[in-house]
Amino acid sequence: MAEFEPKLIAFCCSNCATSAANVCEAIGLSTPGNVDVVRIPCTGRVDILHLLKAFEIGADGAYVAGCSDGNCQFRDGNIKAKRRVARAKKLLDEVGVGGDRLEMYNMSASMGPEFAKMARKMTERIRELGPSPLRKK
């Protein structure tokens, strides 16, 4: 039986994580092909509804990648995102999908290798958790 390939959606800040993804590509590092990147102007734009919709439309996992603490161009967008991710995790637990399938990461624009590492780490976590219970239905 083929190994389960999780489908992930990554909400990436255009000031850090998206640039990190470009660095990653420029230095020839591969990122897992199972991650769909949604570029956003700032993680402060991410709403709980965006995160829930990712799972509703069939993602096995999702994460938000924002700037390092204290480095948000819009002051505290990444901190707001962190709070929303925490609430969305609780809702996913309550619903039965599982909050572990959602995560928040922080990075700077130069952290290309870390971007790839983070994508692999999340992919591995979701692989261990298995397909989203919503996809099994």
Partner: peptide
């Protein structure tokens, strides 16, 4: 906004119940 969140969570919760 909250209508969207409640509707989304409901759809998922009910789907998990078959």
């Amino acid at each position: 906004k909250e209508v969207g969140i409640i509707a989304s969570t409901l759809r998922m919760a009910l789907k998990l119940d078959g």
